[in-house]
Design a binder for these strands. Structure first.
Lengths: 344, 344
DNA sequence: CTGAAAGCGCTAACAT
DNA sequence: ATGTTAGCGCTTTCAG
């Protein structure tokens, strides 16, 4: 059927071993024969058979990524970083979208149990405990992105640090009555962002009514959604409390909903209320949101690099790095009231 | 190392052939031995080695998808359909993000590299001509999604039909001065949507000033972006023409920009201007956009089904199906002025 | 019905 | 330096 190293060997009058050697750039081949083989290979339009290689090498050069099925911009951008990096390394990426914890298990099983992939990246999903012991013992290359487990490599966002910066920014702008529209507390990022928000206010000696904080109770996407932001702000407004002069919102996507709610009530941003959110997804700049930027693309790159290192050094100590988000100032916080639409 | 069919065979006192047979549900095995083998396999926690299977079967059970790197909601939703369907079929999906035409070629080459994948899905990108002859002759399983080539299967959106419905809807609402904010005409969908818009008006005997039509000249994403919509509307407003009572916008994402521009000029939607756009991406409902819904998830499903059929019947005639978008009426067209935020 | 054996295409250890 | 050979783990004839 298709051309194999046997065809090349015959045509070039060498053994298949030699062919394999030149194809793998291994030493000990005369430049003369090397060139002959290469010429023939090119002439025959030879393409190595990936699976045969994988089988013989016991290495597949492909990774898998398990991501939440309800994908949002965060994953997309991180994935782009992953994909780009992988592709320069000659690796392939298999994607698995998980709907629930059980599926995570299935995919983990499917990916790892056997030669299928060299390693897997788990995104924003909890690692099921029943895999921990086995994976740790077998030293399965697993890196967690935006999630954590002490026994595996992970890459995280410093939610606490980010929330602190956001809150301090609002404080520095003179705001003293601040509110927070948060996602569902069942998600760790939501908990961490809230805790730091509280702590930062407290350290600044600022007290706010407990009613200024609205936590989402939505299940979908853990409340990191536009609807959730809209409802959260509406709920706050329904409480009849004095409207704070500023809000910290736990994600850009929610902030967009918050903006809609505010507009409906004719409350202007940033004149009446300043907004700072979190993530800096693609959309954020279009809404002129001041937000905490997470270097998503970079996180993807780093995830891959860690993975490669892990594959090459299975016994290296596990490491966890967290990215500290940076403040991106746009119009929504009022620090810069100019409407800047076309920012790069 | 890990458990193979040899281990099972030994343990169950049968030959590896028999083990393989029961594992593949092939006939001609006594229920007795079958059960014995299954028991042992389970006990040993056996997992088939995908690559070895692929090598022996000459079939990998994995597909690849080449998508534009600047991914938007459209792809994400289609991909979810692809992924979900594939996963129920036991297939894996390899993702390649292409930045340019040349990369499409590289990935095409890499994917098709013998046996790597059983077929590839090409999304919204033109199939490089230099692959056509070879792929067609070798009957490489290739299905095009949201793009087209006469020699390969494809799944498309009926842009013409959709634009017609959108325009007729506006007409039926009584609008006679209508405008269009379009994407970059270098993209086929933009051209098709514009042509049908024109034709529908003409057939209805409605004439509009040429200046009512604004085509984007942006490169990024072919002008299917929020910025592009914003600028398009601003440009129109700068022309000094009477403002139409309705606009057809070539995508939801642009419509969001259009909305922003209109708001800035204090032009109300839908009271002053009605808007109908195209796509019905996730965000559309949050902006209460009346739009033409493309069944993206379904398109993904169908793409996979077509692919499987193509793999099984390499000689079947090529087919191309186009999905006719359906009108989703929300608040932005004024047909239903009620603010509906929480629609499912 | 089932065991044995021949590949699938490639790598790597072993000869020469 | 290069040819030969033994697998990698599984499927699939081919005998029996």
């Amino acid at each position: 059927m298709s051309v194999t190293i046997y065809d090349i060997a015959r045509e070039a009058n060498v053994g298949i071993g030699t062919v394999s050697r030149v194809l793998n750039n291994s030493a000990n081949v005369t430049t003369e024969t090397r060139e002959r083989v290469i010429t023939v290979a090119r002439k025959l339009n030879y393409q190595p058979h990936a699976f045969a290689q994988a089988l013989a090498r016991k290495r597949s050069n492909t990774l898998s990524a398990i991501i939440p099925f309800f994908t949002n911009y965060f994953f997309i951008e991180v994935l782009q970083g992953v994909q780009e990096t992988l592709s320069t390394l000659g690796y392939d990426l298999i994607i698995h979208g998980a709907n629930n914890q059980q599926q995570v298990g299935e995919y983990l099983q499917r990916s790892m149990r056997k030669g299928r992939v060299d390693g897997t990246l788990l995104f924003s999903l909890e690692l099921p405990e029943n895999f921990v012991a086995e994976f740790a013992q077998k030293k399965v290359p697993l890196v967690l992105v935006d999630t954590f487990h002490p026994q595996f490599d992970s890459i995280r966002v410093d939610n606490a640090g980010g929330a602190t910066i956001a809150t301090e920014h609002l404080l520095s702008l003179g705001h003293r009555n601040i509110g927070m529209i948060n996602a569902n507390l069942q998600s760790a990022p939501a908990r961490e962002r809230l805790a730091s928000f509280r702590q930062t206010l407290q350290q600044a000696g600022v007290t706010i009514p407990e009613g200024n904080i609205v936590n989402s109770d939505e299940q979908k996407n853990d409340g990191f959604s536009r609807e959730s932001g809209f409802r959260g702000m509406m709920e706050f407004l329904g409480r009849g409390l004095p409207v704070p002069t500023a809000f910290f919102v736990s994600s850009d996507i929610q902030a967009i909903g918050v903006l809609a709610a505010l507009r409906e009530r004719n409350i202007r941003v940033p004149e009446d209320v300043a907004i700072v959110s979190f993530d800096d997804v693609e959309l954020a700049k279009n809404f002129d949101l001041t937000t905490m930027r997470q270097p998503m693309f970079k996180m993807g790159e780093l995830a891959v690099k860690k993975m490669i290192e892990r594959i090459e050094h299975p016994d290296a100590p596990v490491s966890s790095v967290s990215f500290k988000p940076g403040l991106v100032i746009r119009a929504s916080c009022g620090a810069n009231k100019q409407y800047v639409f076309h920012e790069q």
